[in-house]
Design a protein around this nucleic acid. Sequence first.
DNA 1: GTCGCAAGGTTCAAATTTGAACTACCAGTC
DNA 2: GACTGGTAGTTCAAATTTGAACCTTGCGAC
Lengths: 154, 154
Amino acid sequence: MDDPRWLDETEMAAWRGFVAATNLVARHLERQLKEDAGLSHTQYEILVQLSAAPGGSLRMTDLADRLITSKSGLTYQVTQLEKAGLVARRSCPSDVRGVFAEITDQGWSVLRAAAPGHVAAVREALIDVLAPAQLAALAESLGTVSDRLRAADS
Amino acid sequence: MDDPRWLDETEMAAWRGFVAATNLVARHLERQLKEDAGLSHTQYEILVQLSAAPGGSLRMTDLADRLITSKSGLTYQVTQLEKAGLVARRSCPSDVRGVFAEITDQGWSVLRAAAPGHVAAVREALIDVLAPAQLAALAESLGTVSDRLRAADS
DNA sequence: GTCGCAAGGTTCAAATTTGAACTACCAGTC
DNA sequence: GACTGGTAGTTCAAATTTGAACCTTGCGAC
């Protein structure tokens, strides 16, 4: 801490770009989803994760890990989605403590309706802005970053 | 919307990586700053922006633009920082409506104390994980993304 | 001049997020 | 079989965030 290695120009540019892009993209998507589908990005991600899981359901903890939010935050959002009828809770046969969140038919409908607009927004904000080579490099770099941080957390 | 161009494998990897890296890095920094300096990342960023501005002060609106948060959110955080003595509000001579936020001496102290740990965390999460070429590519790509989104917003 | 309208900040209520208890329950040990 | 530590989810209060409504005040058109 006494003699930190400050960031050089490129490093600073990468960091500034990361922070700015992060916030701008998040805001862009949040607004699009809210306006067009009435969902927050978090809620949309919950539906996506469930829809991709076998049986359309996941344990709460698994879901929290994939979403990278706190357990209590997930409890809250799943409750909201349950009230809206997009998700249902089911108890886990093998572990009484366990709870499955399962996407409902209505959840599927909402997700299918929301997906095209969401994908378009993702393209507009990130994908279509970059050349294919840039995109591949981005995927690899950010994959590395994610893997490292996930490993560090455990 | 009727026939959306879905994401191919690379595009999906880039997007998933972006979302995951975004959340993981944010969480990593948030925790480090809170633990070591008692600041949220937003508050830290406010101090950084002010410290980099001429006279250590910025108009509220300018500051909000740089931070990419809502105006009301900024009002709240500046009030918090003001209570803590790290920032002061000053009225703008040329425009009665205007308000400057200015970093105080104590704000400088806190920022100087927090910076090394923050930089170390940034290195750990993002910078030192990537090769220089990757970093340069990342900086350029994310810079492009940010510029486009900023332009689109205005 | 003054009218109309946009800009700068704040305020307010509502929604969300977080971490720290807290309740149950599983699993391995003695 | 009871004890220990750890896991799964929820609940709770506190902090934060957001958008809309709201005052003032600047400014250009007429």
